[in-house]
């Protein structure tokens, strides 16, 4: 067994994800299977391989230069707020973060 119940809880906490008791056990067992399968990557010696951090090679890459700092008008704020869960223009309201 690669994954313990505590590890699932630790990850769920990092991801701000509330899981039910049933989900905790299901995901623990399934992650065990998946990580067992993923372990096959260790058959490959990659000590001298550079990780692939970009998909496009430099000659295909988009223009990497910094664009001009020009102001572009965006008037979506009202629409964005209209569909927000708890808007109070021009803000999104959230539960209290700082105690009095």
């Amino acid at each position: 067994m690669k994954i313990s119940r505590e590890e699932v809880l630790r990850v769920a906490e990092l991801a701000y994800l509330e899981l039910s008791e049933a989900e905790i056990e299901t995901y623990r067992a399934q992650m065990d299977d998946i990580l067992e399968y993923v372990g096959k990557l260790n058959e490959l010696d990659t000590t001298t391989v550079e990780p692939m951090t970009q998909v496009l090679s430099s000659d295909q890459a988009a223009d990497a230069t910094v664009r001009e700092d020009t102001v572009v008008v965006s008037d979506v704020a009202a629409t964005v707020l209209k569909y927000a869960p708890d808007p109070e223009a021009p803000y999104f309201r959230v539960p209290r973060v700082i105690e009095k």
């Binding site: 509330e18 964005v80 869960p85 999104f92 539960p95």
Partner: peptide, 24 residues
């Protein structure tokens, strides 16, 4: 996370709200 768009499920704190929203 329930702040700017989509579903929000209330919780007892900001983080509680994130966790419940994402869980549901």
């Amino acid at each position: 996370d329930g702040v700017r768009y989509g579903l929000r499920v209330d919780g007892d704190s900001l983080v509680g709200m994130y966790r419940k929203t994402r869980g549901a």
